[in-house]
């Protein structure tokens, strides 16, 4: 089957003309995009989309709106079947991986379950499973202050997975990692995404290469500029790159592909104009 015939499934997330003003300045200007279910024969395929854009353009704010933490001034968010995203259906891994500092790793995960109506025993069982999967079982009685940066990140991700969330938002999960840790996180992220056909992970990052390596779709958020170079307030989606259609998704040898390197260069070039 050629890529153009690749079926694409139902809409999982639609962001429709979302605008946001902060302190009188227009930050987001009618941001519109959608994420559809990616379908591969005989394979459970979740979705990984990246949101790229210059610093200060409004990426974190957009994630906060998707998570229901901020209310947009205009626009609509809908999930599957064109219905509003049910509360509690969106996970959010914050940039600095906040955890409850007075709770152990295990308790942090258990609370994530009991907050959501799981019984203590169910939550505990699920927490143990996740800790094992993320190779954290030997750290389950540690407090957050005793974790390394990478462990803390894995706990923060695991905490969001205690309760199944269709949409998981991650703000800069690749910052400050050494190359090996970066690969681990990318693998983990892909693994989590493909746990369920309708899973969507949305990653905000400044690391273009990492974004291209994990994603099936890349969105560029940016502002327009006046001819003299000053940005016009209000960021929009300036570009959508469908990596599946380009044959640049779901494969191991991406970094050897000329098309991959070319796309990376192209996106870097676009960045300068945003």
């Amino acid at each position: 089957m050629s890529v153009s015939e690749m079926p694409s499934g139902q809409v999982l997330l639609r962001v429709d003309e979302v605008s946001l003003r902060l302190g009188g300045t227009l930050i987001l200007d009618r941001v519109t995009f959608e994420v559809r279910d990616r379908i591969r024969q005989d394979q459970v395929t979740g979705q990984v989309v990246s949101l790229l854009g210059p610093s200060g353009v409004g990426k974190t704010r957009l994630l906060r709106i998707l998570a229901g933490l901020d209310t947009p001034d205009a626009g609509r968010l809908t999930g599957p079947d064109n219905r509003p995203l049910p509360p509690g259906s969106v996970g959010f891994v914050f940039q600095h991986y906040p955890l409850l500092r007075h709770r152990t790793v295990l308790e942090n995960l258990i609370i994530a379950g009991t907050c959501n109506g799981m019984t203590h025993d169910e939550a505990r069982q699920r927490a143990r499973q996740l800790l094992q999967r993320f190779q954290l079982d030997h750290r389950s009685s540690f407090y957050p202050a005793q974790l390394s940066g990478g462990q803390r990140q894995r706990v923060a991700i695991a905490q969001q997975l205690v309760r199944h969330k269709g949409l998981l938002l991650m703000d800069e999960p690749f910052s400050g990692l050494d190359p090996a840790a970066l690969e681990d996180v990318m693998r983990l992220l892909i693994e989590v995404a493909h746990m369920h056909e309708l899973n969507t992970i949305m990653v905000v990052t400044h690391d273009i290469r990492a974004a291209l390596l994990v994603s099936d779709t890349v969105f560029m958020l940016g502002r327009d500029r006046h001819p003299d170079g000053t940005p016009i307030p209000g960021a929009r989606i300036q570009g959508v790159y469908d990596l599946v259609a380009r044959g640049l998704a779901w494969r191991e040898d991406l970094e050897d592909q000329p098309a991959f390197l070319q796309l990376e260069r192209e996106i870097k070039g676009r960045f300068r104009s945003l």
Partner: peptide
């Protein structure tokens, strides 16, 4: 951020009050 974190996890405001405000500042 601590409040937002608990909200995203789906905690009720009463639970947030207990976990973040009371327990979180016990020390």
């Amino acid at each position: 951020e601590r409040f937002d974190h608990m909200r995203v996890l789906g905690a009720s405001e009463a639970r947030i009050l207990w976990e973040v405000v009371v327990r979180g500042t016990l020390d």
